[in-house]
Simulated assay, not measured.
Amino acid sequence: MNLPKVVADLVETQNSFDSVAYANCFSETAIVFDEGKTHNGRKEIECWIANSNERYKATIKPVGFEEKENKILLIAETSGNFPGSPILLTYHMEIADELIQSLKIAG
């Protein structure tokens, strides 16, 4: 699967639990929606993913990908310390200037 660099970087940094590098895949003003909460800006995103990594130790394996203009849909098998693992999650992303502007993670 040929993923755009920022998406490949996001997968790699998630799977290595590197919250700083993960957050650097996002713009300074990016927004993340996950588990019913919104995280605004790179610093909040870094705190969110560090906490999530600590709780769930989730890794992602891309199984599907679509790209249309600046919108990306990544379907990934997500495994970790949570009920029902592994599950398929969909990562809805908007990209600008090679950085993620928004990410919504849905089951």
Score class of each variant (00 low, 15 high):
Ser85Pro: 06
Asp18Ile: 02
Pro83Cys: 00
Gly84Met: 03
Phe65Asp: 05
Glu12Trp: 05
Thr78Asn: 02
Lys68Asp: 13
Val11Gln: 02
Ile72Trp: 05
Glu35Phe: 14
Asp34Ile: 01
Trp48Ile: 06
Glu44Met: 12
Phe82Trp: 04
Pro62Val: 00
Ile87Cys: 03
Glu44Gly: 10
Glu77Cys: 01
Leu73Ala: 05
Pro62Tyr: 02
Ile31Gln: 14
Val7Asn: 06
Glu69Asp: 15
Pro86Cys: 00
Glu77Thr: 04
Pro62Ser: 01
Thr78Val: 08
Glu77Gln: 09
Phe17Thr: 00
Thr29His: 14
Lys68Val: 12
Leu73Arg: 12
Glu35Leu: 14
Val63Tyr: 03
Gly80Ala: 00
Gly84His: 04
Asp34Gln: 04
Ser19Ile: 01
Ile31Pro: 11
Ala8Gln: 15
Asn51Ser: 15
Ser79Gln: 08
Gly80Lys: 00
Val20Ala: 13
Ile49Met: 06
Ser85Ile: 02
Ala23Leu: 08
Glu54Cys: 10
Thr13His: 14
Phe33Gly: 08
Leu10Cys: 12
Trp48Gly: 09
Ile49Lys: 05
Ser16Thr: 14
Ala21Met: 12
Asn70Ser: 14
Thr78Lys: 02
Ile60Gly: 00
Ile31Leu: 15
Glu12Gln: 14
Ile87Asn: 05
Glu54Val: 06
Thr13Leu: 01
Val20Gly: 09
Trp48Phe: 15
Gln14Lys: 08
Glu69Gly: 11
Glu69Trp: 11
Val7Asp: 05
Lys43Gly: 12
Gln14Ser: 12
Gly41Arg: 03
Trp48Arg: 12
Val32Cys: 04
Ile31Cys: 13
Arg55Leu: 15
Arg42Lys: 15
Glu28Ala: 14
Phe17Asn: 01
Val7Glu: 06
Val7Cys: 08
Ala76Leu: 02
Val32Pro: 06
Glu69Cys: 07
Asn40Tyr: 14
Phe65Val: 03
Ser52Asp: 11
Ile45Tyr: 05
Ala8Phe: 07
Pro62Glu: 01
Ala23Arg: 08
Asn81His: 12
Tyr56Asn: 10
Glu44Gln: 15
Glu28Thr: 11
Ala21Ile: 04
Pro86Ala: 00
Ser85Lys: 02
Glu66His: 09
Ser52Lys: 10
Asn70Cys: 07
Asp18Phe: 03
Gly80His: 00
Ala21Trp: 04
Asn81Gly: 02
His39Trp: 15
Ile45Trp: 07
Leu73Gln: 09
Tyr56His: 08
Arg55Gln: 15
Gly36Asn: 11
Asn70Pro: 11
Lys61Ile: 04
Ala23Asp: 07
Phe65Lys: 03
Gly41Gln: 07
Cys25Phe: 05
Tyr22Trp: 13
Cys47Arg: 15
Lys37Leu: 13
Glu67Arg: 12
Tyr22Lys: 01
Glu69Val: 09
Ile87Ser: 03
His39Lys: 04
Ile49Gln: 06
Thr13Cys: 05
Ile31Asn: 13
Glu54Met: 13
Asn15Val: 00
Arg42Asp: 09
Glu28Met: 11
Val63Ala: 02
Ala21Val: 03
Asp18Ser: 06
Glu35Met: 13
Leu74Ala: 04
Gln14Met: 13
Ser16Pro: 06
Trp48Asp: 08
Leu88Thr: 03
Asn53Gly: 07
Glu12Phe: 10
Thr13Val: 08
